[in-house]
């Protein structure tokens, strides 16, 4: 069995749609906490989008379990391999943790987690202002951590695409590479 050099189509679709959604969520999040005029509109968007990201992240993990991602280039230094592995674990953890912490903190504050129309999610924590205050801070800290990780991810992806040209970027690129990446090493 030879692993495919590209992520499968569901993985690529999930990656790029979630990239757009997560970036939008981070921007909506920082905008809404400082906004008076748009606060309600942004919060009303933030809650259903967060739950959508939670669902997509679970789908993505399930797809990843069934279809292993293509291996990293053989010549990638060990520290970069470790960084790539750790940052992906952290990205997945945050994709799941951000919506769950959001849902949990709203539950502790007894805000209805309204999604769309009359659809309201049930609370997942008992009512507790102290818990709410703690989770509310955690939500902010994790959001900044996620933004930082996304910057690092974006920087590394561009480094692979523009400088190393080692096939890592094209394995996730939404388009099919015009030619095989010249420096892509055969699997050792």
């Amino acid at each position: 069995m030879t692993p495919s050099p590209r992520f499968n189509l569901p993985a690529r679709l999930l990656h790029w749609s979630m990239a757009a959604l997560i970036l939008a969520m981070l921007l909506i999040g920082v905008a809404m906490v400082t906004s008076l005029a748009d606060y309600h509109a942004l919060v009303s968007l933030h809650r259903p989008l967060g739950i959508l990201i939670l669902v997509l992240a679970l789908l993505r993990l399930a797809n990843r379990r069934r279809h292993a991602p293509p291996p990293l280039p053989a010549d990638l230094p060990m520290w970069q391999r470790r960084a790539a592995h750790a940052s992906h674990v952290a990205l997945y953890a945050l994709m799941l943790a951000m919506p769950l912490v959001g849902w949990a903190m709203l539950s502790a504050a007894r805000y209805p987690v309204a999604l769309a129309g009359p659809l309201v999610l049930p609370p997942i924590l008992p009512q507790s202002p102290v818990l709410y205050a703690g989770l509310r801070s955690v939500h902010t800290v994790l959001a900044y951590a996620l933004f930082g990780l996304i910057l690092a991810h974006l920087g590394a992806a561009l480094l692979h695409a523009l400088i190393r040209q080692d096939g890592v970027f094209s394995s996730m690129a939404p388009w099919r590479p015009r030619r095989a990446a010249p420096t892509l090493r055969p699997e050792g």
């Binding site: 809404m32 906004s35 008076l36 005029a37 748009d38 606060y39 309600h40 509109a41 919060v43």
Partner: peptide
């Protein structure tokens, strides 16, 4: 405009 502002505050 007061409604969203009340919600935020």
């Amino acid at each position: 405009p007061l409604l969203s502002a009340r919600s935020a505050a």
